[in-house]
Simulated assay, not measured.
Amino acid sequence: MLSQVVSILFPVFALAFVGYCVGRWVKPDFGPINHLNMEIFIPALVFASLGAMPLEMEQAPLLIASFIAVFLPGLLMIPLSRIFNLRYRVWAPLQMFRNSGNLAIPLFTYTFGDIALAPAVLLFVVSSCAHICIGQAILSQSNPIKQVISSPMVLAALAALILNVSGIGLWEPLYEASYLLGQAAIPVMLISLGAQMCNLRLDGLKVGISCSLLSLFTGAITFTIVYFLVPLPTMHVQMLLLFTMLPPAVMNYMLAERFNMEPDKVAAMVLLSNFFSIATLPIILMVTLSLT
């Protein structure tokens, strides 16, 4: 089990290490690169994923559960931020938007087989679209509605959804082009994240541990509520347990860097929380597989 988790996480840290080396010795300006990723690569990934995803009524309970799993931690962070004197705009997105893409999708398929691919993509798309809309609204200090409406990611999601629901579907060459372009998003995110780690200081370890523990706490509460409120088949229950306990998504750093919301601290929390998941995921997987 541990070797399986390590094999999933290794590519993440390998690319982050490449980014660290680039940032330390080459020292490029990642501002334009991150902007290009947010405006082109990630919208292409969302467009291809949402446009090709099958939409069926049987997925409605999982859809409801995914919305609860994303938004409830944000509500939990309102009192927790006051109790622990945390900056809500910095800490709340890390609890709401977890690593549902490059970590969760392979984790789900390796654990449950190819039958888990469709619900895994659904969870990823819900989390990504919510991150695009709500995440930017939380972080933005300007007009959040304008930020959302003008976002290429939102426009890409709406276009793909219209094509999907209408039955028109994606033209195969357009899908292939979007999919190919979108594949650049995750490597660019990880390399940029690794480069940001050049600015990590000793206090980064403290916030990384704090974020990991907080993620487990808010995730456990969220899963408990989903478990008792939403009737789901066994595999979906197991997937939701994993989904609610995932570490933060890399895109949290991208948006924190874009809106200047303590990007150094967010980078530490994202990378270290994902690193600590090497220890926590095997335990969570054992609990998950025991659910019947």
Rank of each mutant, 00 (worst) to 15 (best):
K146N: 11
L174M: 13
L229C: 15
E56H: 11
P43N: 06
P106E: 04
L229H: 03
Y179I: 00
S100W: 08
A48M: 08
I78F: 12
G219E: 04
V6T: 04
G169L: 02
G23P: 07
L200T: 03
M77R: 09
I149A: 15
P11V: 06
L216I: 12
L170A: 02
P43T: 02
F17C: 11
S277C: 12
P106V: 04
A14H: 08
L139F: 12
A185N: 06
L272I: 13
A267H: 10
F41G: 02
F67A: 14
V266E: 07
A279W: 09
F13C: 09
T224P: 00
T109D: 06
K265H: 10
M245I: 00
Y253A: 12
L36Y: 01
M153N: 09
T222Y: 03
P73F: 14
H236V: 11
K146F: 11
I115H: 02
K146G: 14
V154Q: 03
Y110R: 12
D114W: 08
M153Q: 15
M254L: 14
S178I: 03
A268F: 09
I115R: 08
P93R: 05
E262P: 04
I64K: 05
V230K: 07
M269Y: 07
S7P: 00
C133R: 03
A120T: 05
I162P: 00
Y227Q: 10
K206M: 12
L193N: 00
K146M: 13
F10Y: 07
S49Q: 13
P231C: 03
A65Y: 07
T111E: 10
Y20S: 07
A118E: 10
P173R: 02
S210Y: 08
A16T: 00
D29W: 06
L2R: 00
A48Q: 01
E257W: 11
V12A: 03
Q183W: 00
A44M: 09
G182K: 03
F276C: 11
V226M: 10
G194A: 09
H236D: 15
F124H: 03
S212K: 00
A267P: 10
V226Y: 08
F13W: 06
P61I: 11
F10H: 03
V154D: 01
A157L: 02
W25L: 14
Q183V: 04
M251R: 07
P152D: 05
L76F: 14
S273L: 05
L255Q: 10
E56P: 00
G31K: 08
V26I: 09
V26E: 01
I138P: 15
V126M: 08
I105F: 13
P32G: 06
M286F: 09
I83F: 14
R24T: 10
Y20K: 04
F17Y: 06
A137M: 15
V188G: 00
P187N: 02
G167N: 01
I145T: 12
V266N: 08
L122G: 00
L174N: 00
F97I: 01
G135K: 09
